[in-house]
Lab assay of single mutants.
Amino acid sequence: GTVHVGDKTYHFPTPDAAKKFAQEIAKKLNLQVTVKNGTWQVH
């Protein structure tokens, strides 16, 4: 899975790992999470 946070991109071996990371970052930074075609965006 891929997660975009601002101008950074993180790659994870599984979709679940990407989802978990995106949700944790969003919670920590009080941001929104959207997913499109398996790519997570934190914004």
Rank of each mutant, 00 (worst) to 15 (best):
K28V: 08
T14Q: 04
W40N: 03
F12L: 04
V35W: 14
A18M: 02
K20I: 10
Q23W: 14
F12H: 01
L31V: 12
Q23T: 13
Q32V: 15
E24W: 15
T34M: 06
L29W: 15
P13R: 10
T2W: 12
P13E: 11
T9P: 04
V33R: 00
D16G: 10
P13Q: 11
P15H: 13
T9M: 12
Q41K: 06
K8F: 11
P15W: 15
K8V: 08
F21T: 01
K27V: 08
Q23E: 14
A22D: 00
A18Q: 00
L29D: 04
A26M: 04
W40K: 02
G1Y: 15
K20C: 13
K27P: 01
Q41A: 06
Q32T: 14
P15N: 13
D7V: 10
F21S: 01
H4K: 14
P13K: 12
H43L: 12
H4W: 09
T2P: 02
V5I: 14
K20A: 12
H11M: 07
K27G: 07
T9Q: 08
D16I: 08
V5D: 02
K20T: 09
H4V: 15
A26T: 03
P15Y: 14
T9H: 08
V5M: 08
V42Y: 02
H43Y: 13
G6D: 05
T39F: 13
V35K: 08
P15S: 13
L29R: 05
T9N: 05
V3H: 01
Q41C: 15
Q23H: 15
P15D: 12
T14M: 04
D7L: 12
G1K: 11
P15M: 13
K27S: 10
V3N: 00
Q23M: 14
N30D: 08
K27M: 09
T9W: 14
T39W: 08
V42F: 04
T39H: 15
A26G: 08
E24A: 14
A26W: 02
Q41V: 15
Q41R: 11
V5K: 01
F21P: 00
K19Y: 10
A26L: 03
N30A: 06
T14P: 01
V33F: 08
Q23G: 06
F12P: 01
T14E: 05
V5E: 01
V3L: 03
K27W: 06
P13M: 09
G38V: 03
T9E: 09
Q32N: 10
I25P: 00
V3K: 00
D16S: 11
P13H: 09
E24Q: 11
P13D: 14
F12N: 00
K28N: 06
K36A: 11
N37I: 03
T14D: 09
V35M: 14
V3E: 01
D7E: 11
I25T: 06
T34D: 06
K19S: 10
K20M: 10
G1P: 10
T2M: 09
V3W: 00
P15L: 13
T2A: 08
A18R: 00
K27T: 10
F21W: 10
F21M: 03
T2D: 06
N30G: 15
V3Q: 00
L31A: 15
I25F: 05
K20R: 13
F21R: 01
G1E: 06
H11R: 09
H4R: 14
G38A: 05
E24F: 14
W40T: 04
K28D: 06
P13W: 06
H43I: 14
K36F: 09
A17K: 08
K8L: 10
T39P: 02
V35F: 15
N37V: 03
T39Y: 13
E24R: 13
T34H: 07
T34N: 05
K20S: 09
K36E: 12
T9V: 14
N37F: 04
T9I: 15
K19L: 09
Q32F: 09
A26F: 03
A17V: 05
K28L: 13
G1L: 11
A18F: 02
D16Q: 12
D7I: 09
T34Q: 06
K28G: 05
Q23K: 09
K8W: 11
V33N: 01
Q32W: 07
H11A: 05
A22K: 00
G38C: 06
N37Y: 04
P15I: 11
H11L: 08
H11N: 08
Q32Y: 06
V42R: 00
T2Q: 08
H4Y: 12
N37P: 02
A22S: 02
D16F: 05
T34Y: 08
L29P: 03
Q32P: 09
N30H: 11
D7W: 11
